[in-house]
């Protein structure tokens, strides 16, 4: 494990998780500082997505602990974990995280709405973020009616609208071509830096990982911490 300091925001240690007989995580660990962008790399099937899911409290690890801001995720009730996902976490996946029935602006407003914010207020804020990501003109359309790159920008807007502490991004450019991928990454990283959010970025592309501050390699369910070379 890397050394801890006051900047430490999210720590997962000794994480193990199996799906059936196949272990996906076998003692992985990761530490994320405030405002830091960490790339999680590794070949497919190495368990990097599972690591992200464990860190985000989406999947409960079989053993090991995940601590966010000093709180143990495993010890929390589902309600609080959900609240955390709503407020403190943001998610950008390869695709599919948007609710197809809702329009783009409603999708972006969703986390706030789930948190009990009034519709008008939530959608106004959502539009603000969509403007920052240059997709405010798509507000009334449904995710099925916009291009992949636009959908990812909407997803980023949704991930950031609550000004979360951590954004979990799982292959956010996976379904995009290089050009759209570049733009999405630049917007994601810029917005995260602006709001001071940390980013856990799962990718197998070095070009995408190059947007990070440092990288962690997952192989066979174990992490290899790579020293930050200054």
């Amino acid at each position: 494990m890397a050394e801890r300091d006051d900047d430490t925001l999210l720590v997962g240690s000794e994480l193990r998780k199996s799906f059936g007989p196949t272990p996906a995580l076998d003692g992985a660990g990761l530490m994320v500082r405030r405002g830091e962008i960490v790339a999680v790399m590794g070949p497919s099937g190495s368990g990097k997505s599972t690591l992200l899911h464990c860190l985000a409290g989406i999947v409960a690890p079989d053993s090991g602990t995940v601590t966010f801001d000093g709180q143990d995720l495993a010890a929390m009730r589902d309600r609080d974990r959900s609240a955390l996902r709503r407020g403190a976490f943001g998610f950008v996946f390869q695709f599919g995280q948007l609710v197809p029935e809702l329009s783009c602006v409603e999708n972006v407003a969703l986390p706030m709405r789930l948190g009990g914010t009034r519709r008008k207020q939530a959608e106004a804020k959502a539009l603000e973020w969509m403007a920052r990501l240059e997709v405010d003109h798509l507000g009334g359309k449904r995710p099925g009616e916009v291009s992949g790159g636009q959908a990812q920008r909407v997803a980023i807007a949704r991930a950031l609208v609550t000004e979360p502490k951590v954004v979990f991004a799982d292959e956010p450019t996976g379904a995009l071509d290089s050009f759209n991928g570049e733009q999405v990454m630049r917007l994601l990283v810029d917005s995260a830096r602006e709001t001071g959010a940390s980013v856990v970025l799962v990718t197998h592309e070095a070009r995408v990982a190059a947007y990070s501050d440092r990288e962690v390699v997952v192989r066979d369910g174990r992490t290899r911490q790579v020293e930050l070379v200054s």
Binding site: I58, D78, R79, R81, S82, A83, L84, R85, R86, G87, F89, F91, F93, G96, Q97, L98, V99, P100, E101, L110, P111, L114, G115, R158
Partner: peptide, 16 residues
């Protein structure tokens, strides 16, 4: 199911 899990991801509790 898909729709609801997308909602879960956006931070809806299971009761919610």
């Amino acid at each position: 199911d898909r729709r609801l899990s997308a909602l879960r991801l956006a931070g809806a509790g299971d009761r919610q």
